[in-house]
C-alpha cells in the first residue's frame, strides 16, 4: 500500500482517524491515530491531511534501531524503543504521534483502513491494492 492524499476531496470528517485508532489501538480515540486532517478556515477554506509516506527518516535517527523496514513499511518495535522521541522531531511530515498513555511514539503501519473507509476518496492507495469507500 502506498498512501496518497487528494486533499481537495477531504471534508475533515475524521473517519480516517477513528478507524485507524480502532484498528491499530483497539480504542475509540482519534488522538491515537496516525494521520491528521487539518482544516484551514476561515481562509482559504481547505483541508490538508498529514500522512506518513514511509520515507524512513524516523528509522534513520533512531539511536537504538527500534524502527524496522518491513517490506517498505517502517514499524516501531516498542520493546526496543527507549522513548527518546528523536524520531518525532525528525519526522518531516509531523506524523510520528505521541500520547500521554504511551511511552513509545506510534506511526502509520500502512494497514489501509483509512483508505477503505474514507468517505470522500481523499485517501487513496497509489498501488491500487486497497479500494476506497467512495470507489465502491
Amino acid at each position: 500500500m502506498e498512501l496518497q492524499v487528494r486533499a481537495e476531496l477531504c471534508s475533515g470528517c475524521r473517519v480516517c482517524q477513528l478507524v485507524c485508532a480502532l484498528r491499530n489501538m483497539n480504542e475509540c480515540n482519534p488522538k491515537k491515530s496516525t494521520l491528521k486532517p487539518i482544516g484551514h478556515f476561515p481562509e482559504p477554506g481547505r483541508y490538508e491531511v498529514k500522512v506518513c509516506n514511509q520515507c524512513g527518516a524516523c528509522a534513520e535517527v533512531c539511536p537504538v534501531g527500534a524502527i524496522h523496514n518491513e517490506d517498505g513499511v517502517y514499524i516501531i518495535h516498542e520493546d526496543e524503543c527507549i522513548g527518546c522521541m528523536q524520531c518525532v522531531d525528525a519526522c518531516p511530515y509531523g506524523v510520528m504521534f505521541t500520547h500521554p498513555d504511551r511511552q513509545a511514539p506510534f506511526k502509520c503501519v500502512a494497514c489501509g483502513e483509512c483508505v477503505r473507509y474514507c468517505p470522500t476518496g481523499a485517501l487513496v492507495d497509489a498501488t491500487g491494492q486497497v479500494k476506497g469507500g467512495s470507489a465502491r
Binding site: E8, L9, C10, S11, G12, C13, R14, V15, L18, G39, F41, P44, G45, R46, Y47, P119, T120, G133
Partner: peptide, 12 residues
C-alpha cells in the same frame, strides 16, 4: 470551495 463535514460524516 470545499465540502466541510461534521465528525464522522460520510455525506458532508
Amino acid at each position: 470551495i470545499t465540502d466541510k463535514g461534521c465528525f464522522c460524516c460520510p455525506i458532508p
